[in-house]
Design a protein around this nucleic acid. Structure first.
Length: 252
DNA sequence: GCTCTCCCAGTGAA
DNA sequence: ATTCACTGGGAGAG
């Protein structure tokens, strides 16, 4: 049995447990407007020093599987130069596939790549709206990462791009294989001997939604580590709100 | 005692 | 110092 941290979320438990805690004001507000996603999510709060997340199941297993298959048909991932990133003069091919969708004209930049958002597909709009109804937040952009198996991964990073609206949490929807997800506090990475802030480890279930609230992304790095046992793909969708005008201009 | 996996610390490069 | 991915070594499982 693998060791796990104290804040670990057991996905199978989350699926069956009945939490009657009411949703937040924001959640109810959004749910009232439309009937499409009428059921409030039972949220689990995940907290640590300067870390504030909400975790819940957004989709049933059946619906999540349907959405996963649709995305496998619809989503076009970047290839070639756009699938590489550049950090301090070194070029890497990312160990996963990436795609960006969003409102017209949005460009998302990180680590030396500038990715123009493609137009929303019907499935992505559906997932986006379900996320909005569950959270009360609206999103104009989504970064999609596809991890073909347990070898694909992403290293520790923060989503602290300047163009992100700091008042809007980042919403991470997971479909497909269950993967571990690890938060580490920035002080714990720098001075692990002096600083005793433990990493926070989660399992992200098929159909789950993880909300990363402010100021989580200022202080905590997160990663999706290699897991050799995982043989099937996972698609993650991170919905964000980009502030127009803060983006880097391509030219001009 | 092996092998595999995970985790941590260290490295590169402008 | 910073970024991201990679590498090597040690620990733990079986």
């Amino acid at each position: 049995m693998r060791r796990q941290g104290t804040a670990c979320v057991e996905s199978n438990k989350a699926e069956t447990q009945q939490v009657e805690k009411p949703c937040t004001e924001e959640t109810c507000e959004a749910a009232d407007e439309e009937d499409e996603f009428p059921h409030p999510i039972p949220w689990q709060k995940i907290e640590a020093q300067e870390l504030d997340c909400d975790y819940g199941l957004l989709f049933s297993k059946e619906e999540a599987s349907r959405l996963f298959m649709q995305l496998e048909e619809e989503v076009e991932y970047f290839t070639g130069e756009e699938a590489k990133l550049q950090v301090y003069g070194k070029t890497y091919s990312v160990p996963r596939k990436q795609a960006t969708y969003g409102d017209e004209g949005l460009v998302y930049s990180f680590s030396g790549v500038h990715l123009a958002a493609r137009v929303w597909t019907p499935t992505l709009e559906y997932i986006r709206d379900a996320t909005t109804n569950a959270t009360g937040h609206t999103f104009n952009f989504v970064l999609i990462n596809r991890y073909k198996d347990g070898e694909d991964h992403i290293g520790e990073h923060r989503d602290d791009e300047r163009e992100l609206d700091p008042s809007c949490p980042i919403a991470l929807v997971s479909l497909g294989a269950v993967r571990d997800f690890v938060f580490r506090h920035k002080d714990a990475r720098k001075e692990p001997k002096k600083c005793h802030i433990e990493p926070v480890k989660l399992e992200l279930a098929h159909g789950s939604l993880l909300l990363m609230n402010s100021p989580t992304n200022t202080y905590w790095y997160h990663s999706l580590p290699v897991r050799k046992k995982v043989k099937t793909p996972r698609i993650s969708l991170t919905f964000r709100r980009i502030i127009k005008g803060r983006q880097k201009r391509k030219k001009e």
